[in-house]
Design a binder for these strands. Sequence first.
DNA 1: CCATCATCTTGTCACTGACTAGATAATGCG
DNA 2: CGCATTATCTAGTCAGTGACAAGATGATGG
Lengths: 192, 192
Amino acid sequence: MTSRSTYHHGDLRQAVLDAALDVIAADGPAALSLRDLARRAGVSHAAPAHHFKDRTGLLTALAAQGYGLLAETLATAPDLRERGVRYVRFAVEHPAHFQVMFQPELLRADDPDLIAARERASAELRAGVAGLRELPDARTAGIAAWSLAHGFATLLLTHNVRDALGDRDPEDYFRSLTGLLFTGQLPLTDGE
Amino acid sequence: MTSRSTYHHGDLRQAVLDAALDVIAADGPAALSLRDLARRAGVSHAAPAHHFKDRTGLLTALAAQGYGLLAETLATAPDLRERGVRYVRFAVEHPAHFQVMFQPELLRADDPDLIAARERASAELRAGVAGLRELPDARTAGIAAWSLAHGFATLLLTHNVRDALGDRDPEDYFRSLTGLLFTGQLPLTDGE
DNA sequence: CCATCATCTTGTCACTGACTAGATAATGCG
DNA sequence: CGCATTATCTAGTCAGTGACAAGATGATGG
């Protein structure tokens, strides 16, 4: 990849995005360097800027891509619990996307692609509780379910549930979490 | 603060930590520059390095401080629900600490102070479910409660629940979340 | 066939983190 | 009290980075 016969790369945009995913998954967004990505793709140090304008542009493109993937993943889930499971699965399978999506300081908030993709994912999240008509406040219920899945996914990626997990599959573990919570087995008060 | 009569600053360590909290709360950890912090404190660009070794050292010190604060906050909570509420409150009142604490790539994982402080906070989290003797698996219950609080706190700080929140107090909203979840009002399957 | 445009290169600038050597103050030990 | 040791801070330097500008190369369409 270091030497190239053609002057043009061919698909530099995707090559840079893929390389960025590797770097971020390994060492986080802070370790990401446009010049390093350029070296990996075998192009000059300023080439990536033409596709993403700047560092923020690259991260914004990644986040938009992530929201798109998440929306796809959620779309075909049969019920609310499965939506949660797929949310967790998305975080595990696309850790770099997930990290970038939820660090707004790294992104250009007014980017049209980002806003559109986020809205698609958001609609899928809302769809998960839309059918629960007996609920007084579907939106609050949605936030509750989202919080649970997002929190577990985040703690998973930040290595905070390793001991509890053991060698169990994260998705299975999450299923048992929902079972514990939603059946009212966990009392809130008078614990002692 | 720019000019200083004495050669020594007096309390440069805390001054740098405080300035770092401001920067991170405003623009995230990525916007943090040791040289900028030095300028704010009115010292030379290399002075902070003596207190924190490097950038990672500074962030690790912040994280350790954060875990200490969190442990203190949780210690006096009367029951599990109130522990969750205080977890959310901590995230709102100390957003910079919270962000840094849960980005392991930014930290020195083997730092003794960090490990000790994290263990103190972890013990307080476990204490929240320790009294629930009727539970088959207190550890899993702890992860469930932690996930919910952590997820809500994270979504709060990343501006993902603004619309749902309106002008309500985040803590109150979280209380209603727990009420909704733990009483089994939210069916998991057959949503449609 | 040529004009236009997208893509890539080269060169440059200010800024940053990390390191080194040396200056200055505080501390403790005889 | 005097002096050595240590903690703290300054000044200088280097490689790496993001951003920008100007120009080269190749593709595309009228």
